[in-house]
Write a protein that binds this DNA or RNA. Structure first.
Length: 422
DNA sequence: CCACGACCTACTCA
DNA sequence: ATGAGTAGGTCGT
């Protein structure tokens, strides 16, 4: 564990319930962040290498600009202002603004959680263990590519694939912590001949064709086409935002017109179905009402919201729309955000095995999970224990009905796996 | 429209 | 040590 000299960092006061990067950055929104042994998250973003660290009081940050020779210069941050004052942003450093934008920090998260909890007892029950989750405002193209990769796939491999895209097609920004950081490749970089074959060789499988075809389509459109599908209240970084409307009144259950337009436009791309389109709408285009219905959300809808029977017995197009409408009616204009919180709560059951490929998996206490340290690779299983559940049997959905909702207690089993014995 | 099966790969678990 | 099963879906029939 390298000693973190946080005195050299800039910092922003923020509570873990308003923002928890350890949850937000690992819940399957963005696939590009990397965390080192010292607990520092880093990613190439907007032409710089952004590094973050969080404790219960502050979010620490610093960025390395793309200097021509970012070689091995001691990790001196580019800023020279004393760290005593949290907010002295020197006029040309827009890192704080970038963080504010990327992490979508304007809404008061506690207020949102309270609103969603008041409207929905299920949310009220599940959310307290998963506070601080924010919907990131990601680049639309990056979100599109990432979620095309996500089909029939797991988060670990998605991350590997996105990383390969950056290494092979993205411009090198610099080095940090002994690793190269590439920016995300633009559409044109994936539209060249031979890209599909190369991606196949890199292990992308059938998604290689989708990526190439989609890159061709997007780069054939006028510049800025993707961003033209944005929610105007949620512009890209560098564009001044409008005052967002906060009322849920008159919010159409099917979503606003611009959202529907964006969703329909995205469906024309290869490898983009309704779920991926909604992911891009929500996390890349700022449409808070987008509800990506994947297998997990479908399970949640059945288990907790009475879907899966009668008219909505299977996940048809109609059922998909009905789930979105139901959630929007329940939670309002940021329904996709609320849904992501429940999604993350559901994801937890098997999220532990994903991230740590080479490093040990470390779960911070702010994820509210007890952790046991082990010298070896730690694999954690969260087992849902209901009345009588055969171990190993996947219990899809309990058609609850409020009454017979058995208290689902979760026990965390931690076991250490030894690296394979020779 | 809806129902089905195929689709790449890496990793986990019997 | 091998093989089935699976992971935040989409496409063609």
């Amino acid at each position: 564990m390298g000693a973190l000299n946080l005195a050299e960092w800039q910092k922003l006061p923020v509570s873990l319930s308003e923002l928890c990067i350890n949850t937000t950055l690992r819940c399957g929104q963005s696939f590009r962040w990397r965390k080192n042994d010292a607990g520092v998250w880093s990613m190439a973003l907007h032409n710089r290498i952004l590094s973050l660290h969080q404790d219960p009081e502050y979010l620490y940050y610093r960025s390395i600009p793309p200097a021509p020779s970012v070689l091995q210069a001691p990790p001196t941050p580019p800023c020279s202002n004393p760290p005593s004052i949290p907010e002295t942003v020197d006029s040309k450093d827009d890192t704080l603004e970038l963080i504010h934008h990327y992490f979508n920090l304007t809404p008061k998260l506690n207020d949102l959680y309270n609103r969603w909890s008041a409207a929905d007892s299920n949310f009220a029950r599940k959310a307290p263990k998963f506070t601080g989750i924010r919907i990131l405002k990601q680049d639309a193209w990056e979100a599109l590519v990432g979620f095309i990769c996500s089909s029939n796939n797991n988060i670990s491999r998605i991350g590997q694939m996105v990383h390969k895209l950056c290494v092979n097609y993205g411009p090198l920004l610099g080095h940090f912590d002994g690793e190269a950081y590439h920016d995300f490749p633009p559409p044109q970089a994936l539209a060249n001949d031979g890209v599909e074959a190369k991606l196949r060789g890199l292990g992308f499988g059938y998604r290689a064709k989708y990526l190439h075809q989609t890159a061709c389509i997007v780069s054939s459109k006028p510049e800025g086409w993707l961003d033209s599908l944005r929610n105007p209240e949620s512009p890209a970084f560098d564009i001044k935002p409008l005052a967002p409307a906060l009322s849920n009144d008159d919010f159409p259950p099917q979503g606003r017109e611009g959202y529907l337009k964006a969703h329909a436009s995205l469906l024309e791309l290869q490898g983009v179905g309704p779920k991926v389109a909604d992911c891009v709408c929500l996390m890349g285009l700022g449409w808070g009402e987008a509800i990506p219905v994947d297998t997990h959300v479908w399970q949640i809808a059945q288990r907790d919201y009475k879907f899966g029977k009668g008219k909505h017995a299977s996940l048809t197009k109609d059922t998909y729309a009905a789930i979105g409408a139901k959630f929007r009616g329940l939670w309002g204009r940021e329904a996709g955000w609320a849904q992501s919180v429940l999604f993350t709560a559901n994801l937890r059951a098997f999220t532990e095995q994903l991230v740590g490929k080479k490093e040990e998996v470390k779960i911070e206490e702010d994820v509210r999970v007890k952790m046991e340290e082990g010298g070896e690779e730690v694999v954690r299983d969260v087992v849902k224990v209901e009345k009588v559940v055969e171990k190993g049997v996947k219990r899809p959905y309990e058609d609850d009905g409020e009454k017979k909702v058995v208290e689902i207690s979760e026990s965390v089993k931690t076991r250490k796996r030894k690296k394979r014995q020779p």
